[in-house]
Nucleic acid binder design. Sequence first.
DNA 1: TACTTTTGCTTGCGAAACAAAAGTAATAAT
DNA 2: ATTATTACTTTTGTTTCGCAAGCAAAAGTA
Lengths: 148, 148
Amino acid sequence: MDIKFRCQCPITSALDILGDKWILVIIKQMLIEDKKTFKDFTESDEAIATNILASKLKCLEELGIITKTQLPDNKKTNLYLLTEKGLALTPIIVELSIWSDENVRELNSIMRDSPEIAIMKSDKNTFIKMIQENYKAKIGLAIKNDNK
Amino acid sequence: MDIKFRCQCPITSALDILGDKWILVIIKQMLIEDKKTFKDFTESDEAIATNILASKLKCLEELGIITKTQLPDNKKTNLYLLTEKGLALTPIIVELSIWSDENVRELNSIMRDSPEIAIMKSDKNTFIKMIQENYKAKIGLAIKNDNK
DNA sequence: TACTTTTGCTTGCGAAACAAAAGTAATAAT
DNA sequence: ATTATTACTTTTGTTTCGCAAGCAAAAGTA
């Protein structure tokens, strides 16, 4: 499962990792939809097939973008959590959000609006930090309490 | 060549358009590597196959992200240029650049550094505007002078 | 004017990625 | 002990990708 890089360009190299239909969707689900178990992901709106999910999670783990951990009192359920490298993708997710709001809505009639879009645009940096701090707080809880 | 949107999520909808191996690479080549003809693209480092290139250009045109125009004094060579919708992808390209510099370099030993990365990080917004203004100036020239 | 090259594609075919459904093995709940 | 849940794997397609070749129109050259 080794990544092949097409050339020396940093942007193209980023897309060698992120440039597919699912990787950034999975990151988004973890970051802002609170998904962290295999089952969480299978139940999302995007309806990813389980074989694709398994292979993408493995790939993300190998790249150091997520970690897979077991909880002490549950040997079945694995927790998939973003690393710092994964959290660092937040600005990209936010920019995708903004571009989509302004340029994709006209093409997708059923697209919902994000209520935070105005805040997001007016103060991008604090919004990014907010999402990241929020995520860190949540995974702290998840590990301590073993909650769903 | 109609796009199918997976769900109502704005981010996922953006990735229904941008989430593949080539779309953002082509945008990057136009935006910062000055590529604008079919031949320009085929000669790039990434070495895209011509059938993929043709289909992606068509798709981008249909989505209103690029335009295809002929020059008055050259009936053979088409010019592919970014629309405002395409130019609005600049922040995403810049964020990919930054994430790559910090997180992909360790995985791709042959990756080159961008000399502008420091400027990019220190003043993101002006850098984005600079790229966009630069592009607009260039296409103005290209249309007036019909230069290579 | 004829010829050669360039440009912008299309076609055909094999390989890889993606997708739907079913199956499995380990664990947890009843 | 039985059933359900979770996290996968396997199987069987389908779609996308990628290479090589081919081709037609326009442009350049003799």
